[in-house]
Nucleic acid binder design. Structure first.
Lengths: 153, 153
DNA sequence: ATTGGCAGTGACAATCATTCTCAATTCTTT
DNA sequence: AAAGAATTGAGAATGATTGTCACTGCCAAT
């Protein structure tokens, strides 16, 4: 078992219980190729666990974000999306490529080291200058993907 | 008159009319220190132009985004925010520093050249690899600002 | 100058993701 | 088993955004 299982301990240490919804929501996030919305997760679970309500999904996601077990993203499509944070998931750090037409999102991990180096340097300088504790960053590129480019004659 | 006035030509060339709402919405964006939401703009205008409705604000903003005269941002507070794009505004290119507590947003222009150089290089490589026309990028850092840090004893 | 047509508009209704409320249920610890 | 707290689900409420529709104002052709 790698680090990615320690979320249980993490929750319990804070007095939260391990419940079915929490188990399976994390499971869904782990098995997916990411960027699921609350509704996506609900749909996915509904097959096997019809008893779990959407409200619970939202509540659980909020808790997990707060515990930094998952990360919440806002790509411009008016709904939040979630993915396991690196520490608890198996995915490598990545950034996003967003198609503004079909809102498809591509994760890329290329050239990431170079980016991260710069980011780290920048973070340090910004924290000092603006007295700001930086906890995370977002880098994303927006544009038009191949398929959408084809479509627009 | 600098480039920042050419949005009129831009609209007209596409067959759109120059109307009061369009004029004043751009004016508000130009005079503000940015990141206004649709409602912010509505409030601002309502004093002098009570006849302009919120719907028109939304419609105009959508049009201006489409024309790339303004840029739409989604910081995680569940409402879109807008700023003039560089080409039509006077602001220098900048990135964002977001406080996750009070949602205050700091624009920073420091170290931006270094960042842009890397970004440009990365964009080129990504476009090639993923067959993706990149039109814009977002870099933002999230964290806790000085004031909020103080508050949380 | 009239008219036809369409861009532009505002009030209001509708939508949709998310949050709130509250009563019921399930743990955990006695 | 019982108390007390955490967790839950259904449904209502919220709030930003979008859709509808009738009305207005502008421009071009007659």
């Amino acid at each position: 078992m790698g680090k990615h299982c320690q979320w249980r301990e993490r929750l319990q240490k804070k007095g939260y219980r391990l419940t079915i919804p929490r188990e399976v929501i994390i499971e869904v996030l782990r098995n997916s190729t990411s960027h699921l919305s609350a509704e996506d997760i609900y749909m996915e679970l509904h097959k096997k666990y019809p008893a779990i309500g959407l409200t619970t999904i939202y509540r659980t996601l909020e808790l997990l974000v707060q515990m930094k077990i998952i990360v919440k993203f806002d790509f411009g499509d008016r709904r939040s999306r979630y993915e396991l944070s690196e520490k608890y998931g198996m995915k490598k750090h990545h950034h996003h490529l967003i198609c503004s037409q079909c809102t498809k999102i591509i994760d890329y991990t290329d050239f990431i080291n170079e980016e991260l180096e710069l980011i780290e340097k920048t973070e340090k300088r910004l924290m000092k200058k603006y007295n700001f504790s930086i906890t995370s960053h977002v880098i994303s590129f927006t544009g038009i993907c191949l398929e959408c480019k084809k479509d627009q004659t």
